[in-house]
Design a protein around this nucleic acid. Structure first.
Lengths: 311, 311
DNA sequence: AGAATAGTGTCTGTTAGACAGTATCGC
DNA sequence: GCGATACTGTCTAACAGACACTATTCT
């Protein structure tokens, strides 16, 4: 598909045509950074609740992998790995997911490319292209393999804390915000990873600059806490104007289920009546109902395609 | 800032500590792709209109650079170049912009990373991290240098054409859209670059896939037409919910000026009354008025910081 | 009847869109 | 007064937020 300069006879300042230029070009003249893809895989977990009469709770989970080798040996990290020369970026993300965790056929979206700090990886300079994946739980069986000693789902609990450093005032041109987020990642079998992120946002005129630091020594390998945080922001904002959330849902679901999922993603409670009105155009009744509940059974819905859902 | 595994004595399967592991690690064991940053620089041009009584027209312009060497020698491309080992990604974008075009101190934002096609660059495998820059025209003097034979502003004219391949229907799970966009880039001195992009959007359930192809042999170097198109989408969508547009404005401006800028970015006309209400909270009167107009002079406004503009 | 959730109705205030109408300058 | 743009008022329909209320199941 590569479009070439039609004028193949044109010569450069050294008198070379394209062909002779390419033959003499040394692709390794300059040192290169390594490129990796890292994937933030989210799913929804249904947490049983003691009282059988009450509805199950939902939790947002992220898939982590325990590192088998240095650096950060034994620590939890996002699945991912080095880009190979014969694959596209997206393809690489898919492959890494498959190799390390056995996850396949999922919604996958490029997030952001991380490569500011020169020492993100102690081995060498690394640029990471981050992806986000969404899957319905139970659809896939997670299997740790390859560089991963283990692979597990961790439930995400987070609390945000805003602080305004400059009070609003027409006199100041620069305004600062600080947001600290405490994270607790807890696996199904009780292992916990806790850390705290500090986000400094500085607004000068119409420009905004962010700086993220980790306040904890513990936590995820590399700067993966930052990537996770970015992914959480992205899914929350996309949930508001696209049907992206349905990638986390099973075929059939109740509106209460769906609402709970929106609530864990947006990290805030919603009014049922308003929620139902808002998503009405994206769902469709199936005709069937919940069974064996010890309260009024809810209707099952399914996703309904709609041109207006996307923009 | 690199956070290390605290347990420096821990050994991997080969019995190595972190220190001995790093010493024996060969960063060049695997071949690496090259990494570049490419920058889409936008500005607004005030186009004089014959009739002195009428208001000037605005045009959205992009900064292009004429390639001095193979590949795509003599063709127009986005400014950009290879990432160096001692600089962050953002830093690299800034440096390339400075070196090739003399542009400095601008709003800069990471867009997306392009690296699907293996032959994007005929020399070797290249991953491009694309940035978008916004500057007010006249603030900077453009100077071509380095790998660039020339550097010029091109006004962007585009026409979009939507086509729905499947009519809406509850029976189909897959829905397809095609959008073809014809571009005409015209420099201040009359040079024109024309091309047409075809975007195929396929929606399956809650998933959307895009595929972009160029319908023209001519056009920009590499896949830079695709990057430009992406940048235009981004600035339009961000214009709707952030004050990003003010990065293109001079210190003082009239609301008609501002409206025209929004119109070229959104590529559609706006109602003045509605527009004024919408942006009212982001601007502030300066007290001064236009002078020497041959019609009613407009008030000058300036950007006003507001916490609510950003989210 | 009571516990628990499913699901609906409605009031209020805000906003988007469309358009008509008034204001003000230079000539 | 005319040409041209600056700026304002207002109607309507849609929507977001908050909350009260009804419905249905099992025990």
């Amino acid at each position: 598909m590569a479009k070439q300069n039609k004028d193949v006879t044109r010569r450069n300042s050294k008198g070379q045509t394209l062909e002779t230029f390419l033959k003499s070009y040394d692709p390794d003249r300059y040192p290169k950074p390594s490129v990796t893809t890292d994937i933030v895989v989210f799913t929804i977990q249904n947490k049983e609740v003691g009282n059988r009469r009450m509805r199950n709770q939902k939790e947002l989970q992220v898939l982590l992998v325990k590192r088998r080798d240095h650096p950060y040996i034994g620590q939890w990290a996002l699945p991912g790995g080095f880009l190979e020369m014969n694959e596209g970026l997206l393809e690489s993300a898919k492959r890494e997911l498959q190799e390390e965790t056995n996850v396949q056929d999922v919604y996958l979206e490029q997030l952001y490319t991380f490569g500011e700090a020169l020492d993100r990886d102690p081995r060498m300079r690394v640029i990471s292209v981050a992806y986000m994946a969404l899957i319905g739980k139970g659809k896939q069986r997670i299997v740790a393999s390859d560089d991963a000693e283990d692979a597990k789902w961790f439930s995400i609990k987070r609390k945000e804390n805003w602080r305004r450093l400059d009070e609003t005032s027409d006199r100041f041109e620069v305004q600062r915000l600080e947001k600290s987020t405490t994270y607790e990642l807890i696996s199904d079998d009780g292992e916990m990873i806790a850390f705290e992120l500090l986000k400094k946002i500085e607004r000068r005129g119409a420009t905004q600059e962010k700086e993220i630091t980790s306040l904890s020594e513990e936590g995820l390998a590399f700067d993966h806490h930052e990537i996770l945080d970015y992914a959480l922001e992205r899914i929350a904002s996309k949930a508001e104007y696209t049907p992206i959330v349905f990638n986390l849902m099973p075929e059939r679901f109740t509106l209460s289920d769906l609402q709970q999922v929106y609530e864990v993603i947006l990290n805030q409670p919603l009014y049922a009546a308003n929620f139902r009105r808002k998503i009405a155009h994206m769902v469709e009744e199936t005709g069937s109902y919940e069974e064996n509940t010890q309260r009024r059974p809810a209707r099952y819905y399914k996703y309904k395609f709609n041109w207006n859902s996307w923009e």
